[in-house]
Structure formats: C-alpha cells, structure tokens
Design a protein around this nucleic acid. Structure first.
Lengths: 320, 320
DNA sequence: CTGAAAGCGCTTACAG
DNA sequence: CTGAAAGCGCTTACAG
C-alpha cells in the first residue's frame, strides 16, 4: 500500500500515466485551449487519480511570481488591523491571489524581521497595516518589493502606496457631535480654540493632549472650568477614560461625554457603549490590495483617502 | 543607474563578480566549512555588494522543504488564538523556521480553503488552532501534510498531533473557588450534582446548560432557589452575563458571582474585572510547534495536555 | 495538436 | 579547497 506522504506525484508521473509528454500535462492542467478534449480528459483523469498538484516552488521559480502577497499588521490583537486584513483577503481572493499574514507585535525589530521573513518566503508584494511603521525600514524594503501602507506614518518614502482615512474629517464629526451637548462657555472655548488653531495654520491639529488622571480629577472636582466632553484620539484611550470615570464615580455621559476613534470591538461591548469614529476598514484593505496589484503591474504609487463615519452610542449625551 | 527591483542578483552574478564557480558561492553563503577563508571573504563581499539573497523557490525546490510552517487560527480576533500563535512563533523562531498565519474566520469552508492555500504555498507543516475544526477536513489534509491541532476537536484522526488543556481540572478550579461563596444549600446541591454525574459516569461533564436570560430573571426574582454563582464555559458567555446582570440591576459579585473560562483580554478590562480560568496559551503554542517538528522528523503523533490556572478577579465573591 | 529542449536558481554528489 | 555536471519540477518557446 502507498504510504501517506511518501513523495507527491509530479507532472512526470502524470505524463507517464496518461501516456503523453510533460509539456502536454502542464498545458492541460492549466486549462490551455490548445489541447484536444479527449487528451485533456485523459490527462486530468490521471492527475486526479494520482492526486497531482503542481509544485509551488517550481511554478514560482519559472514564472518569477508566487501569486502570494503578505499582510503585515502592527498588532494582530487589534480588531482594527484584522478588519483591514479581511478586506485585503477578500480582494485578493477575488483576484486569485493568496495572502499570508504576519504580526509585528508593535515592535520595530519584530516588524523588520517579519518583513525579512516574508521576502525570504517569496511574496510578490506586501501590505503593511500600521500607523507608525518607521520610515527607514519601509524605505529599505520598498527598494526590494512593492509596498502599500495602510495608516498614516510620517515621511513615507516615494514609491510606497498609501491608504489612510481622513482623520481630520473624522475628528470633526466627533467634535461636532459633542458640541451639541456643550455648555455655551464650552462652545465658545472650542470656537476660540479652533480659531487659534487656524491662525497658527494648524487646521489639521485635532488632538489636545491631556493627562487622563488630571482630566478625571478636574471633572470630579467640578466647577465651570471642568470639561463636559472629551474626544479621544483612539478607543483605547477612550476605554481607559471610561474606566477611570467609573472608578471616580463620574457618570458617563451625564457628567462627561466621551467619544473614541476607531470603533474597536470593545466599543459596543463596554457599558456604557462607546461613541466612536469608524474607519471603513475593510474597504481600506481592499483599496490597499488593489493598489498593490497596480504597483505590481508597474503603475506609480498613490495616496488614497477613505472617509470615516461617526457611530453614536451611549457614552455621549445626545444633542439637546 | 540601476533601477530598483529590476532583476535580483543570482548566485551566478555573485560567482562572476567574485571570480569563482556557482557551487563555491552556494557553499560560502551557507557557511560551509570547506571554503578557504580568503575566498569566502571575497565571495561574501561580492554577495553583499550586489545585495544577493538566495532565491527561496529554487532553494525549497531542491531541498524539498521550505522551513516554513503555517498557523491557521479559527478566529484571528480571538486573543486566545493570537496568544497561541505567539507561542508557536517564538518556538519557531528559536528553531530557525518561518511562520505564516491564516485566518479561518470561524467558517468551515474558509478553513478548508485556507488549508489548501497554505499547502499550495509549500509549508512544511501546519498548526491548526481551533476547538471545533471538523474531523473530515482535518483527516483529508493530514494525509498531505503534518498537522497539529491546538484545542479539543472530537474524533481527531490518527496521526494528527494534539495539544489541549485540561478542561476538567480547569472547571474544577473555578467550581472550587465559587463554592467558597456558596450557601450551604448550594454546596449540597453542587455535591449531589457532582455525585449524580459520577453515578452516570459523566465525571468529565463540567457544563450545565442554562439560558442566560432565564438565569438572570431567576436571580433578579430572588428566592432560595436562585443561584448565587455561575461558572461559564467561556469568557464570551461570562461577559454577556455580566452585561445582562448589570442591565437587570443585579450586583456582581454581591448578588451573583460569575466566573469565565479562557481569560480573554476583555476579562481584565471589564468592570467588574472577570475571574477566569487561564490556559497556558503560549506554552501550548510552543508545545504544538515542537510536536510539529517531531512529526516532520518522522516521530508519531501524541496528545499533550497543558494545565490551566485560575485568575481570581472582582466578579466572584471571595471565600468567607 | 503534440513532443523534445532549454532554462528558472539553487544544492549536492563527484571529480580533481 | 574548487569546478563541472546533474537534477529539483515546472513553463515556455520552438519544431514538427
């Protein structure tokens, strides 16, 4: 009896079994038109009987392509990242390409090592899902393989594709929503803040840094100066803040509205559920794959921008 | 000027640049002892200057191995699964093997398709992280490639390696902990329940099915028959239950103790934080990789069992 | 429509 | 210590 996994059958074995040349087998299994129907049937039958599958290494070697692309995420545990991965996968599937995933574990060195591994594996191109991959590394690898980055790293080298979301419009959505529940003074403050930003030419500035502990202490202390609403740069911060508010006895959203950014899984599971800005993650993944395909075809890199939406939940007071 | 990514240099180019034969280049770059130091230096220098890297397809083709293994998780979003992946990765790294990750998305068909893709990629073996991969699929693929399953699927075919945790001892930990806060009647009930299980030969039975909504309603209704503690089969159920308790105004753990299983990330983020049984996930990943390596070396498959621990947090009343 | 030949880039005996 | 040769399993012109 034939042992399982002794030696996989090759094109040679199929040729012998079907009584034709290796070339014909190759043509037949790949569905080439120029093979007589009868012969093709005989070949495919033999291939089937023997359990033949084309050897990927030989195929890739001769074609110079593996039809496989890599997706390297900065953090496998992030629902944001995995959603982008799914977008890439689905688009790849549609294009007949295989996808392998790797995890950078939010570590520069690991990220670099993973890129190296993927290249050593023979992927045709790589999508990096990371808001903070370092430009030097990206530059090094971009010279060796087509690269598309999903996120908004700074100083992205030329020739690297990019897909990001419109952070500015996203934050604007959140602020607009929150201002509905602001006291007049707060609205005025916000307006002057925005005006100042504009004067300084910082129209893009959307983040005011604040220490969470100090912020919570201020709110707990009360007084007219205390904020009644907070926009967080991401959901991790927002979740942390909700937890601290709970611990300090501050009721959310009654005493403090909190909005996050990214709409992570946790956002809908937390109590209260978290209002958050949602990036079209799967779409962004699909855009990334499409662009990678374009790069592979020799087209120039571009920067694509996706538009976020606001998901209103319990953590923010409704406009009144 | 040399275009980026025109055609990667081959062993041939290096040989020409260093003025030696291809064979010598091959030996030198792989660090073979039988190459004179001076020649080696000249070769490595040339290789370096040209940016030479050995072509993975050619190498794998001739060696019949890719030194790459695949990890297929049932759900990429699960912190449990990704921890196992990290365990596999670290162990693989130590053994000089590369790892590629794929996501089964909790879907039989996708799982099967991903297995096929990984095989078509040329991995040497596969670790499947799944508690419910179907036996038929596993059997099919086990005939084609060495396989190790992390989890506890039923009817695992012969020849497939397995790493699971000791669910029974884990649940026992949780029940023992909870019984510390049980009323005498509850303790008696539990004891008789366990006794009955033993009589029925169901010593392994650790799960009592209950509808969450009914359970919460019963507790909210009060009365001596209402449970004061619940062991959940996994943290998802436990998190759901905590949420329902909150909504129903039931205080956890004062009115109801809730323990989960798996110690997912969320467990420590929830308020109250969730008591849970923790599987040694990374260790399990490492065990899986080691076993896969053994299978690759021709050793027989085995079933390894890891021992869980209890992580006590706020969702359960302390023993008194 | 079909077969023989060359070649993808490497590794591995086999001679010298 | 070094080189020439064969071969891994495929695909791709090139003849018939």
């Amino acid at each position: 009896m034939r042992e399982p996994r002794d030696r996989p059958p090759t094109i040679h074995d199929v040729a012998a079994a079907a009584g034709v040349s290796k070339s014909l087998v190759s043509l037949a299994v790949r569905g080439d038109a120029g093979v007589r129907a009868e012969t093709r049937a005989r070949i495919l039958d033999a291939a089937d009987r023997l359990g033949y599958r084309s050897n990927p290494w030989a195929r890739s070697l001769v074609r110079g392509r593996s039809q496989t692309i890599g997706v390297l995420v900065d953090d496998l545990r992030s629902g944001y990242h995995t959603d982008v991965v799914h977008g890439v996968e689905d688009a790849a599937e549609a294009g007949g390409m295989a996808v392998v995933i790797a995890d950078g574990r939010r570590d520069r060195e690991v990220l670099r090592a993973r890129l190296e591994r993927m290249l050593a594996l023979g992927v045709d191109g790589i999508v990096i899902v990371s808001g903070q991959a370092d430009a030097a590394t990206i530059g090094d690898f971009a010279r060796r393989v087509p690269l598309v980055v999903v996120g908004r790293p700074v100083d992205l080298p030329l020739g690297v594709g990019q897909v990001s979301n419109d952070d500015r419009s996203g934050m604007r959505l959140a602020m607009h929503h929150l201002s509905g529940s602001m006291r007049p003074a707060a609205v005025a403050r916000r307006d002057s803040y925005l005006a100042m930003m504009r004067e300084l030419g910082l129209e893009d500035a959307t983040v005011v840094e604040a220490d969470p502990a100090v912020l919570i202490a201020t709110v707990a202390g009360g007084g007219g100066e205390a904020p009644t609403a907070v926009c967080c740069a991401n959901d991790r911060l927002a979740v942390d803040l909700v937890g601290r508010a709970f611990d300090a006895g501050i009721r959310v959203p009654d005493a403090l509205s909190i909005a996050g950014y990214d709409d992570i899984d946790l956002a809908s599971k937390l109590r209260p559920t978290l209002t958050s800005v949602d990036q079209p993650r799967r779409d962004m993944g699909a855009l990334a794959l499409r662009q990678l395909t374009d790069l592979l075809a020799g087209n120039p890199a571009r920067h694509e921008v996706a538009t976020p939406t606001l998901v209103v939940r319990e953590s923010t007071a409704q406009a009144r």
